[in-house]
């Protein structure tokens, strides 16, 4: 019984640490970055981009087949590239978190699922959510210890 209680408390501590610790992590200094993103039906290459908070970023979107676009969730930015052309967009990554970017020009059947991911800083959305989930279940088990150990 005692070991079960220790397990649950450790789970709670671990969950809270996972949720909160990334907030105290030392951020890397912002730099200037350029990413070339090749868009072809129905994927971006690279599909995932990692940035530091404060980075000044230029995205170069190159369409490899038909017209493709890129809309960045959270930042509400978009650009469109004609086939063989390069479209550029420069912004400062001043919002931490994980954001999807998606094609904003109908490009074919799987167009609604042409999606990439841009992460600014550590993926705090995930660590926060995972930490909260673990903490929530630990608290649940602490509140209902008898039923859990039936």
């Amino acid at each position: 019984m005692k070991s079960a209680m220790i397990f649950r408390l450790l789970m709670l501590a671990g969950g809270l640490a996972l949720a909160l610790l990334p907030s105290f992590a030392q951020a890397a200094p912002p730099v200037e970055r350029v990413f070339r993103i090749e868009a072809s039906s129905f994927a971006y290459k690279p599909g995932q981009i990692q940035l530091n908070l404060g980075d000044r970023v230029t995205l170069e979107l190159v369409s490899m087949d038909v017209v493709h676009g890129l809309y960045l969730d959270g930042y509400d930015l978009s650009l469109t590239a004609d086939p063989g052309q390069t479209a550029r967009l420069t912004f400062v990554a001043d919002r931490a978190g994980s954001f999807r970017f998606r094609c904003n020009v109908t490009c074919g059947a799987m167009h609604p699922f042409m999606i990439g991911k841009l992460t600014v800083g550590p993926n705090h959305s995930f660590t926060l959510a995972a930490g909260l989930t673990i903490s929530a279940i630990a608290i649940f088990l602490l509140i209902h210890p008898r039923r859990a150990s039936q």
Binding site: Y71, D73, A136
Partner: peptide
């Protein structure tokens, strides 16, 4: 075409999944 509530999506999905997790734990018990 304009995505809606993209700022709310991650918190909403997190809340939904945490609720599902707790609900399944209660059901398991």
């Amino acid at each position: 075409w304009q995505p809606l509530f993209t700022g709310l999506l991650a918190p909403l999905q997190t809340l939904v999944l945490i609720a599902g997790m707790l609900w399944s734990a209660e059901t398991a018990q």
